[in-house]
């Protein structure tokens, strides 16, 4: 018998989850709160399973306890220091893994950020003669791009009081910034709308068969 809706009970569960989340549009209610707590619990359980199978077991516990790579005791002990915050007398030791993470992260990021986010971005913003070959427009857009970047940077230049030639330049900067914020807003709205279309499509197509597959 062909029923006008899905008979797969996992599709029903997905549909109920979707409707429970949408119920917040009416007002805060227990069904939404249950769905929200299920999501948090599932996400944490998922994270723990992935952490175990991709980090803790294959690169820490198995090499250390099964393969006997004793050097791994060092990161293992650093990790265990996180739990000293439970013991009031030793709680200051939790600063050590945090300090190591910040020191390592800062040291690793400084030269790499310089290369990827400063030099490469500056290089990509330069106006080159070949941009004018064929059509003149790519070159003109590149000039506008470069001027826009300089104007935007001048708007955020707070080391000197804004007066003299800096004032009109930073006013041009705010024009670019506002267009940038507007475009970002438009993109964000559209990404949320596409998610919404996806959920409505699921309900009407996969669950209720109103839209043909």
């Amino acid at each position: 018998m062909n029923l006008p809706f899905s008979t797969d009970w996992w599709v029903w569960i997905a549909a109920i989850c979707t409707l429970a989340m949408f119920s917040i549009l009416y007002r805060d209610n227990p069904i939404y709160r249950v769905a929200e707590h299920i999501f948090v619990g599932l996400a944490l359980g998922y994270g723990l399973s992935i952490t175990w199978h991709q980090a803790l077991w294959p690169i820490a516990l198995r090499p250390l306890f099964v393969e006997g790579q004793l050097i791994l005791i060092i990161p293992f002990c650093i990790g265990l220091l996180f739990f000293t915050r439970i013991i009031p007398k030793l709680s200051w030791l939790v600063r050590i893994p945090i300090a190591l993470a910040l020191g390592w992260g800062s040291g690793v990021s400084i030269p790499r950020v310089f290369r990827a986010s400063i030099f490469h971005q500056m290089k990509a913003s330069l106006v080159r003669p070949e941009m004018f070959e064929g059509s003149v427009w790519p070159g003109i857009w590149a000039i506008i791009l470069l001027l826009g970047i300089l104007a935007t940077l001048s708007y955020f230049f707070f080391s000197r009081k804004e007066k003299g030639p800096l004032t009109p330049v930073s006013k041009v900067g705010i024009v670019f910034i506002m267009i940038g914020f507007g475009a970002t807003f438009g993109l964000t709205v559209m990404s949320r709308i596409s998610l919404l279309i996806g959920r409505v499509q699921f309900l009407l197509r996969d669950w209720l068969y109103i839209i043909p597959k």
Binding site: F156, F176, T184
Partner: peptide, 29 residues
Amino acid sequence: VLSVPNMAAKRGIFLGASLAGIATSLKII
């Protein structure tokens, strides 16, 4: 709009944020 004025603003903000990130990292070290 996305590839010229928007990119100019984004790149300007990104450059500023990257410099600020480097300054913060140095302050931490």
